[in-house]
């Protein structure tokens, strides 16, 4: 029993960690500027392809991970300044439409450059194979992803709660205009915040590419569960994103084991149940958009 269940639980946690990281990036961007970034998945895919291209030219995995994440974040900053920031003063529908359009454009560009089917993206040799823990063999790459995503989350928490810039971000979420009146350049803050969300997406994108396979829709496929994670966890809550992500990931993987036909629908059921009991999500605050 346990030898069947354990790998699925690890699977669920790994998937959940991806959802959590993506959800945190979405939340950061949504909380500060009201932008619902439907292009978030595209940035993940972009980072995966950039890493793939670097590796196919001889770079090792680690350099490709770092370089593609940084490049993707920079592209994110440019997109934010040129396209998204002019819409901050308008209702969120405008940026929603814009980022939806962007995701379509990105997807077609991926097809043009890297082709319509998945490209071979393999985990580095030092992370392939399996690791034995007790009686159970678990894929080393999955274990690595778990550790890596935890490290990223801890780094993010340290940034938000232990640095001046993090403090400004937390203040701006509550009252950006007041923060500006106290001398903070909020436009710069919006930009930094967007870049940070994209950096998280990019790291997750490269890691996911080695696990899920890299195709033009890889990131977008992860985006819907990530949005559900945000809703389940509660808008604006980092803890909510982490718990929500793990719940969604575990629910999907365990359902895959026992009732494969329901694995696609289980996250919607979970969301409906959570919202019936607690409309603002597990950790959400009331009236975050109020």
């Amino acid at each position: 029993m346990i030898e069947h269940l354990a790998p699925e639980i690890v699977n669920g946690i790994v998937l959940g960690a991806f959802y959590a990281i993506i959800a945190i990036g979405l939340s950061l961007i949504m909380n500060l500027t009201g932008t619902i970034n439907l292009a978030h998945g595209s940035f993940m895919t972009l980072a995966g392809y950039l890493a793939f291209t670097l590796m196919s030219r001889g770079s090792n995995f680690w350099f490709a991970l770092a370089a593609s994440a940084i490049c993707t974040a920079i592209i994110g900053l440019v997109v934010e300044r040129l396209l998204i920031s002019p819409l901050y003063k308008r209702v969120p529908l405008y940026s929603l439409l814009l980022t939806f359009g962007l995701s379509l454009v990105f997807e077609e560009v991926f097809r043009l450059i890297w082709g319509p089917s998945t490209v071979p993206f393999s985990a580095p040799p030092e992370l392939s194979g399996a690791t034995q823990i007790g009686d159970v063999f678990l894929p080393t790459y999955r274990l690595f992803i778990m550790v890596a995503l935890v490290v990223v989350m801890v780094a993010l928490l340290v940034f938000l709660y232990r640095t001046r810039l993090g403090l400004r971000l937390r203040g701006a979420v509550q009252d950006a205009e007041m923060l500006a009146a106290l001398g903070t350049n909020t436009q710069l803050l919006y930009m930094t915040n967007f870049g940070l969300g994209i950096l998280l997406a990019a790291i997750a994108g490269v890691l996911a590419a080695g696990l899920l396979g890299l195709g033009p829709t890889m990131g977008n496929d992860l985006l819907m569960p990530a949005f559900i994670t945000v809703v389940i966890g509660g808008m604006g809550s980092l803890a909510g994103s982490i718990v929500g992500g793990l719940l969604v990931g575990l629910a999907i993987s365990i359902t895959t084991l026992y009732l494969p036909a329901a694995s696609e629908v289980i996250m919607y059921v979970l969301m409906a149940v959570v919202l019936l009991i607690r409309p603002r999500g597990l950790f959400g605050e009331e009236g975050i958009f109020g």
């Binding site: 403090l167 937390r170 203040g171 509550q174 009252d175 205009e177 007041m178 923060l179 500006a180 009146a181 106290l182 001398g183 903070t184 350049n185 909020t186």
Partner: peptide, 22 residues
């Protein structure tokens, strides 16, 4: 506004506008 503030204008707003979670 941030440039005005940095040049030396302080603001005590109506309703106080605390960053209430901080």
């Amino acid at each position: 506004p941030h440039a005005v503030a940095r040049l030396g204008v302080g603001y005590v707003p109506e309703g106080r506008r605390m960053f209430k979670n901080l």
